[in-house]
């Protein structure tokens, strides 16, 4: 695979939210408006790049059998350092917008998932491309989800009221049920599109082989390359 496909696969073909279904907690939790989605996405993007670089450098040092606890320690340390440095030195406006989301990322399974599935097996450059693609894919999805929910709730986008006469908020959309409903609709559209293009090319639509559950080797101690 080339660098370009390492980068682009995160945006559409292996989109972390809509295809891999990783990081559901922040996806459902923070997307009550577009600004929050953007903040969470950008914060995750930076942490993902950092953690992919660190894991990729350390991949030969960490013993394979205890790699997952090691990754968790490395990622949690990295995120905590970033949080402290941001609190201390970042301009107040940036800290206000992103600071809230940084602690949420410590246990985000996108970061751990990419460390395990990609950074631990590939070079630094390819890991950075992967992190950029996954981070941007995550950000775009969260912004789209947040924007839909925000607009359906009170007719605004990015805190700007588009429809000024919309006085009664549609509360369902801003609470958890709305998140599930909109995410379900997004997943349905994604699958429909994929299926449509598969049928058009004369194939039967199945989940990509390396992403299906039977191909998962994350917890398999015997299958350590």
């Amino acid at each position: 695979m080339s660098l370009t496909s390492d980068f682009t696969k995160g945006i559409w073909k292996e989109n972390p939210v809509l295809v891999l279904l990783l990081g559901m907690c922040p996806t459902l939790g923070v997307t009550s408006n577009a600004v929050n989605g953007l903040g969470m996405g950008v914060a995750t993007l930076f942490v993902l790049i950092g953690s992919n670089i660190v894991i990729s450098i350390l991949k030969n040092v960490i013993p394979k059998k205890i790699r997952i606890p090691c990754y968790i320690v490395v990622i949690a340390t990295f995120v905590t350092i970033v949080k402290n440095l941001m609190d201390a030195y970042a301009p107040a406006a940036i800290n206000e917008a992103l600071g809230l989301f940084i602690p949420l990322i410590v246990v985000n399974c996108i970061v751990l998932g990419r460390a395990e599935a990609f950074a631990a097996k590939n070079s630094i450059i390819r890991s950075i491309a992967d992190a950029l693609g996954m981070g941007i894919g995550f950000t775009l999805t969260l912004v789209a989800l947040g924007a839909s929910r925000e607009f359906l709730c009170n007719g605004s986008l990015f805190d700007i009221h588009i429809i000024t006469a919309w006085n009664t908020p549609f509360l369902l959309m801003i609470f958890a049920p709305g998140a599930f409903i909109i995410l379900g609709i997004f997943l349905a559209i994604m699958n429909k599109l994929e299926r449509h293009s598969a049928i058009k090319n004369g194939r039967i639509y199945t989940a990509p082989e390396h992403l299906s559950c039977s191909a998962c080797r994350i917890c398999d101690m015997n299958n350590i390359e």
Binding site: S32, N33, N36, E150, C153, N154, P169, L171, I174, F175
Partner: peptide, 8 residues
């Protein structure tokens, strides 16, 4: 300081 629901 607060942690109330965004938008409400």
């Amino acid at each position: 300081k607060h942690a109330e629901t965004p938008g409400l």
